[in-house]
Amino acid sequence: MSALFQFLLRQGDNTLVLGHRVSEWCGAAPALEEDIALANTALDLIGQTQMWLGYAAEIEEAGRTADDLAFLRDAYDFRNLLLLETPNRNFGHTLLRQFLFDAYQVPLLASLESSTDQRIADIATKAGKEAQYHLERSQDTVIALGDGTEQSHTIMQDALNRLWSYTGEMFESDIVDEAMTANGIAPDPTSLRDVWNTTVDAALKLADLKAPEDNFAHKGGKNGRRHTEHLSHMLSTMQVLQRSYPGASW
């Protein structure tokens, strides 16, 4: 697997897995407006997936399409962050996970806009506008719920305690990242930590939420070595149609 292919899978799998998770709220959100907002966010993410995985498939040159990569790979071939495959649990938990990712995705895409790979720069420019919009919403919602009622505050603090150990993986750098950085294709993930901390700390303060002090980080998603059991369960739903009726199309 080439480094560029793996890098593109990471981008596409992040948006695909989060997009699918967010889409699980369709028809089940606590209010109609939130239902619409979640469905639209999922739509943006899955649209971005088509661009990332479409490019990944071209780079791979194995005759696969973006759809093949999305629907016919198994969990161990996925390269998404563990944070994004964690179950939705509740509305507050879903929005906090979204915020923790958006706060990372916005500076990442901003940096990718000046990638030496023009196609990546174009995708990042397109996706960046949408990510910025997602960040505004997830940030406002996290602050409103954290600084809301005693019940919503408790739910948000619990979500933060559960999700915190999944945030460290975003800033882990490995051999794929080194290859991307060396060619000016993508930034070193560790370089995104400061701006992420600034965004997250400011929002958590307004939300009256406290991040755990333990910085232990679960890893194994972006390199595919140790996904959580949740990913397989998610894929079994997401891929069932193509697995049961190979080649089915609208």
């Binding site: 407006e33 939130e34 619409i36 907002a37 639209n40 966010t41 739509l43 943006d44 919009y133 919403r137």
Partner: peptide, 13 residues
């Protein structure tokens, strides 16, 4: 503003 998203991806409510 009621919501940042509306009936289609390009609209807010």
């Amino acid at each position: 503003k009621i919501s940042q998203f509306g009936s289609t991806p390009c609209k807010a409510l």
